[in-house]
Amino acid sequence: MVMIDAALVQKVAGLASLELSEAEATYAVKNLARILDFVAELERLPEPAPSAADEGIGGFSRLERDDLAQPSLEPETAMANAPAREGTAFQVPRIID
């Protein structure tokens, strides 16, 4: 069983591109530990059959569309949610890395 502590929670938060306040980190340590403790009951299950759970539920096969050009959104419609724009381009914050 994995030990959940503040360092692990912060590491996972980093992987998830989240930053946690102290209160949020405390909450996460407590509750992630309880949840992972609970789901540890799965340990006793056998290894899954190869790809058994990957074949789609419902018994239908995955479909692919023909590779044909389709109508797309008008530029003005597509731009409607842009916080900032220049012509038909989305303006994003300057990257200073």
Binding site: L15, A16, L45, A52, D54
Partner: peptide, 23 residues
Amino acid sequence: IMLGTFALSAGYYDAYYAKAKAG
């Protein structure tokens, strides 16, 4: 999101996500 990130992360995938799929 954090629970899912953890379950998919290297070293824990087989113990959590793969087992969940078995379930």
